[in-house]
Amino acid sequence: MAKMIGTIEVDIETCKGCSLCVEACPTNVIALADEVNGKGYNYAYMANPDACNGCTNCALVCPDSCITVYRKKVEMV
């Protein structure tokens, strides 16, 4: 059976920590970091990277276009 695995890359300095991506993620991958970026915002990061399937919902709702999504199909044994 094939499975989609995905990952996201967040542009930390552009992220404003609005948490819309946290809300939009259907698999609860994203969370806001305890650390802050140069502007003092708690940026978004992948807290649970195993669950990401690369659906792009987070990137679609991101107002600052700081999320890049990658997705790959892998064959499960």
């Binding site: 404003k16 819309l20 792009t56 107002p63 890049t68 999504v69 990658y70 997705r71």
Partner: peptide, 25 residues
């Protein structure tokens, strides 16, 4: 494997809008 990224029509300037503003979307 790239499925979604920032479009080239948008410039690299950081938007001045408040966090979560619909304008950005």
């Amino acid at each position: 494997n790239l499925v979604y990224g920032k479009t080239k029509v948008l410039t690299d300037n950081v938007m001045h809008y408040c966090p979560g503003c619909s304008h950005g979307v």
